[in-house]
Design a binder for these strands. Structure first.
Lengths: 338, 338
DNA sequence: CTGAAAGCGCTAACAT
DNA sequence: ATGTTAGCGCTTTCAG
């Protein structure tokens, strides 16, 4: 049988309470005691029983996902995965819920973050970077809350990101686009909802660097911003078709491809255009099947959600994580591996 | 606070013991009692606390991975992931270990399976299909052991598989190979360690069907078997180069690509040959970076290992699984998304 | 067929 | 600074 705290206490010649204090480094323990316990841990090979600890602690965590209120299909998928994960984590005493935030209004987002964050143990936030939100997040972190950024740039601030490396995702898009496009010089259209989003900037960076290095015959044109407005998107695409005679491919950077791809359909013959888009949604899946989109660069929303929850928990209990499990893979989706 | 068994017992007007009997349908309970408990569960919204149950039960599980003794690099990766997972699951009372089996010797494999299986609660087995092994596995299943097949065909027998759908993987290889290869007629070399392995057969099936339908100008040649012998592989590749004037691509089906790719390197100019291989190992990763391999069709070994463990546990506790979490994705790896 | 009661390994008051 | 002890929610004898 695996040694228990009782065994440990006996082996270290101290009481259960002292063992517990050392194990959870609560302080107020003599140096000798600490040393004795640590020595005994090594000697008898003690590993704590998490179930028992959680039970005794009786602590239940409240984690909250804050998602943009007008998020579109991809955010819809996230909601589904959160529901699913919420059920499986409930058994482990973790309550997971969601809240919609007005992502475009940095002020109100920051206010909501502060308010909701105060009541939760952990927050996973999906919102464009902004000073207000960043400050609110950092303040919460100071208060011992654990907060994670979803799908946003890594290393920009002190807030840990969860999601694919957007620069690498852009590079991946460039590589698949380059390989799928018949060789010979050509121009590549690049679309974004709006270039102010940190993730679009990073994708663009990775895309350009890779394309320039590997496919110098392909020229990436300046980013076109649709603001997710169908009419505007059509106008933009049509203008592009008129102004550029040798467009051979298009890269749709935003996670909501529908508006842009629909616009491309009216302005171009998609059979002669390599189209790379992001994220798997009902729309992009159908478009991939129909041959309108050639490949999808995606991240698994279920994995992102579960990873975020595991990471928030690990932080709450200040335990480590299994890094390889939490790395979010950049997936390339074709029709055959949907 | 979440309702507990005590609350449930009170709500149903029965004792804790009866509640437990119903919850774990142990039988020997009156119909009325069962009904009362179920009604109360719905009424007060009871969900069991797994931690507490596991603690009280005091049960620890023993799971064992049986892997081929001469497995090569890919199996090496598996060992690494198993070590890693073993640590994280130990905290939850799950002991995970490995054992090497003589995969080519069906008899001894079956014998080892029977012997090791008797001592474990669950077995994850990676071995070629054979009647002997199948029978040993089914016998263990009858004895209430839980056994999973790693990387082997789905639906072939009563033993649940863990790993990618090999037919779809073959199709994915075909699609990426087709798109990466300049159009115009050409021949495609297909390599296997040996075609007797179920997974190679399925990959070939998926590959051929997809290639024929989408890339009719590409002709897949009969499978070439290397038996993983370097000299033999070189001979085969050289013969292929001599006998076929228009080879434009190669599909390496086996999880150990090194021998075949090295042989291809001597017989062909890899710059003019699209090479698709399987699985991420140090070798394939380097080859991908060097441009010798054009794309990798892979499955995440860490995910496979964790999924197998979760599934064995779920079976032991006869709980359900979150299907979307256990589906092993067919990954397409390029240099940019390594 | 049903119930009472003693733990599982750990935590957290409350003592000392 | 250290120890004692009463549970956490559930399972499991052992009686009835």
């Amino acid at each position: 049988m695996r040694p228990t705290t009782k065994d440990l206490a006996k082996a270290a010649g101290v009481s259960l309470a002292s063992v517990d204090r050392v194990l959870n480094d609560r302080g107020g323990v003599g140096k000798k005691t600490v040393a004795a316990v640590h020595e005994a841990i090594e000697r008898i090979g003690f590993t704590r029983n998490v179930s028992a600890a959680n039970l005794a602690r009786g602590k239940t965590y409240e984690f909250r996902f804050l998602l943009p209120e007008d998020g579109g299909e991809f955010v819809g998928k996230l909601y589904d995965r959160i529901d699913e994960a919420s059920q499986m984590f409930e058994e482990e005493g973790i309550k997971v819920s969601t809240a919609a935030i007005p992502a475009l209004d940095a002020h109100r987002t920051a206010a909501m973050l502060a308010e909701i964050g105060a009541k939760a143990d952990g927050i996973a936030l999906m919102s464009p970077d902004s000073p207000q939100v960043r400050d609110a997040a950092l303040r919460l972190q100071k208060d011992g809350k654990h907060i994670l950024k979803l799908f946003s740039g890594k290393g920009v601030d002190e807030i840990a990101p969860v999601g694919i490396d957007n620069k690498a995702a852009g590079a991946t898009a460039a590589q698949i686009l380059g390989r799928f496009t018949p060789s010979g010089p050509g121009e590549v259209l690049v679309f974004a909802d709006t270039m102010s989003a940190q993730d679009s900037i990073e994708r663009r960076l990775g895309f350009d660097a890779f394309l320039a290095e590997r496919f110098p015959n392909l020229t990436a044109l300046p980013s076109l911003e649709t603001y997710r407005q169908p009419a505007r998107a059509v106008t933009i695409a049509s203008n592009a078709a008129r102004n550029h005679s040798n467009v051979v491919a298009a890269y749709v950077m935003s996670p909501e491809a529908a508006v842009t791809v629909n616009a491309l359909k009216v302005a171009f013959d998609l059979n002669n255009l390599t189209v790379i888009a992001h994220e798997r949604t009902d729309y992009t899946e159908a478009a991939l099947r129909a041959g309108e989109i050639d490949a999808l660069i995606a991240q698994n929303p279920g994995h992102v959600v579960r990873s975020a929850i595991r990471q928030m928990r690990a932080r709450c209990e200040n335990r480590g994580i299994v890094a390889s499990q939490e790395a979010i893979r950049i997936e390339i989706l074709l029709e055959a591996n949907l």
